[in-house]
Computed example of a mutant assay.
Amino acid sequence: MELTKTIKKLESIYLEKPERVFTMYLNTDPSDPDQQGGEWRIHLKNGLNNFKKYLKTEDSEDELNNFKKVIEQVNNFFNEYELDLQKSVIIFATPSDGLVFAEILQVPVETEFFWEEIAKVDQLIRLHQEYPRVGVILTQKEAIQVVVTELGKCIDTVNYELDLDTEDWRKHPSVNRNHTTMGGSGKSVNIREQFLARFEANRHRWYKSIAPDLDKLAKEDGLEYIYMMGDPEETKDLAKAMNKDIHTFIDKNMLDEKPDKIIKEVHKV
């Protein structure tokens, strides 16, 4: 999403009549007592209709037609994504460019509608300050995962696993861990014990070899805040090997959890 760049782009928009910028912050949170019956539909309908009525009284046919173009884009968005709604929706749209920015979010907003010369980004800026671009680095022995989140939403996940034969870290798109489990025969348990002993003996060196990749990822993704989650000894060693500052450490093993659950845990801190 690169929200900082998006906000700057939105701030640069200025449209004179009969064109305008439509801004919408809509609360769709089903856990909100005021939203138990899906009242967001009523708020959306009333918000759009109020502008239509006003433009009709202003006798501005060109501006009304432009607003109708925007309404069509907004309605199409909700028709397509209504079943995917979470806590809120933010939309910025123009008659000529359509939906400049449209996001379904897991964070709350205050419902507001604007049809003005500029995009009303004040609430979006506040949300960005509260939910910046964050990286969560999760460790679990020979596996490392990075969850990138912004506005409480998972933007990306990157997974690394140590190849014990080559001692190289391999990057892959999804968690598919192949290390030996603790269960099963006495032989498999013994193999796992041997691995754990080997890992402890080489942890510092192995984490030092992956640290530059994590630093590069943090820089390229523009991470404004970094959490590290896992066994305290592991996270301590990995943090020492990295150049980027780790802002918060969380003593929990959640590497095999879904990103949304990890993000919720981080927001509790």
Rank of each mutant, 00 (worst) to 15 (best):
230 G>F: 01
2 E>H: 10
196 L>Y: 08
23 T>W: 10
61 E>A: 10
238 L>Q: 06
121 V>H: 09
91 I>F: 02
268 K>I: 13
85 L>C: 01
169 W>Q: 08
216 K>H: 15
69 K>S: 00
116 E>P: 07
47 G>F: 02
242 M>C: 15
179 H>R: 08
77 F>Q: 01
100 V>C: 05
154 C>G: 06
152 G>K: 04
125 I>H: 05
218 A>H: 02
1 M>C: 06
181 T>P: 00
173 P>K: 11
232 P>I: 04
40 W>Y: 13
234 E>P: 05
95 P>M: 07
134 V>L: 01
132 P>Q: 05
87 K>L: 00
174 S>W: 06
13 I>P: 10
14 Y>A: 12
2 E>P: 05
153 K>T: 04
217 L>N: 05
254 M>D: 09
123 Q>G: 03
247 H>G: 00
269 V>Y: 15
21 V>S: 07
143 A>N: 14
188 S>E: 13
13 I>W: 09
87 K>Q: 13
82 E>S: 01
218 A>G: 00
107 V>F: 01
88 S>K: 03
32 D>P: 07
253 N>C: 08
32 D>C: 03
16 E>T: 11
178 N>M: 03
83 L>F: 09
52 K>A: 03
115 W>E: 00
141 K>N: 12
53 K>D: 13
71 I>M: 12
197 A>C: 07
61 E>S: 09
174 S>V: 14
127 L>Q: 02
132 P>L: 11
126 R>F: 02
28 T>S: 07
177 R>T: 11
105 L>S: 04
79 N>E: 15
126 R>L: 00
243 N>W: 11
223 L>P: 00
136 V>K: 10
151 L>A: 02
95 P>F: 09
134 V>H: 11
169 W>H: 02
149 T>Y: 05
267 H>T: 13
252 K>L: 12
130 E>N: 01
220 E>H: 06
9 K>V: 05
133 R>N: 10
44 L>G: 08
170 R>G: 03
4 T>Y: 09
49 N>E: 10
46 N>H: 01
34 D>N: 15
98 G>K: 00
31 S>D: 13
233 E>L: 09
63 E>I: 00
266 V>W: 05
106 Q>D: 03
263 I>P: 12
150 E>L: 09
259 P>I: 11
157 T>R: 01
81 Y>M: 08
151 L>H: 07
124 L>T: 02
90 I>C: 04
121 V>N: 01
141 K>W: 13
98 G>T: 09
12 S>M: 09
54 Y>W: 10
218 A>R: 05
227 Y>H: 04
215 D>A: 10
150 E>Q: 11
99 L>Y: 03
219 K>R: 13
94 T>A: 00
148 V>K: 11
143 A>Y: 14
27 N>G: 05
37 G>P: 06
88 S>T: 09
138 L>C: 12
235 T>R: 04
170 R>F: 06
34 D>A: 15
265 E>A: 15
37 G>A: 15
46 N>A: 02
15 L>A: 12
146 V>L: 13
64 L>M: 11
66 N>Y: 06
103 E>Q: 07
256 D>A: 14
22 F>Y: 03
202 N>Q: 05
193 E>Y: 06
268 K>T: 14
235 T>A: 01
100 V>Y: 02
207 Y>F: 15
40 W>M: 09
7 I>T: 01
78 F>I: 07
83 L>G: 04
72 E>R: 13
